[in-house]
């Protein structure tokens, strides 16, 4: 490696990963995708304007393209890869498929993470709360209609499961 010699470790989805020979300017998005084999977070703008790279850091949904990876050494990082359990998809993931929330799918992982985060904080969001919560996740294919439908369905499914 010609540009970097950073060595540090990150905790992603509960596992410790060593990062070696990294360049200091690498974003968390780059390190997840190119060094840790976790390509679920997607890069589409590199400036926090599309939400495709959304991950959870210490309980907050953030754009991983705006996190300098080497500074996230003491954080709990959760990516889309950790959401689906062995017994299947989450309600949100399932609803994205059944309601047509997926077309090209490039925005999908970021949206799924953002919506899981929303529903964990606010299990019964209003329509406007849903829209505001995902207003930082750009989707170019769907026009959002089927995505709203997917969130509504997921909220109902989660509610039914609680009762």
């Amino acid at each position: 490696m010609s540009v970097g010699n950073e060595i540090y470790s990150l905790t992603v989805n509960g596992e410790h990963h060593q990062v070696k020979d990294a360049w200091i300017g690498e974003s968390l998005l780059y390190v997840l995708r190119e060094r840790l084999g976790l390509p679920g977070a997607k890069g589409a703008c590199e400036q926090g304007e599309c939400g495709s790279c959304t991950v959870i850091i210490d309980g907050e949904a953030v754009c991983s393209c705006l996190v300098m990876a080497a500074t996230a050494i003491d954080s709990e990082i959760t990516t889309v890869e950790s959401l689906a359990k062995k017994n299947g998809l989450t309600e949100v993931q399932d609803a994205f498929i059944t309601e047509g929330g997926v077309q090209c799918g490039f925005c999908t992982p970021g949206l799924v993470v953002a919506i899981e985060h929303l529903l964990n904080k606010n299990p019964d969001p209003s329509e406007l709360e849903i829209k505001e919560a995902i207003s930082g996740n750009i989707c170019r294919c769907t026009g959002y209609g089927r995505i709203f439908e997917a969130v509504t369905t997921a909220v109902a499914t989660r509610k039914a499961a609680r009762n």
């Binding site: 200091i24 300017g25 974003s27 590199e46 400036q47 926090g48 754009c63 393209c65 705006l66 996190v67 300098m68 080497a70 500074t71």
Partner: peptide, 24 residues
């Protein structure tokens, strides 16, 4: 000095700034 990163990381990603040492 790096605070939230929402400005500085854009500059780094867009090749406008080359960090050497960082205090986060």
């Amino acid at each position: 000095l790096l605070q939230g990163g929402t400005d500085l990381m854009v500059e780094i990603n867009f090749n406008h700034r080359k960090p050497v040492d960082v205090i986060a």
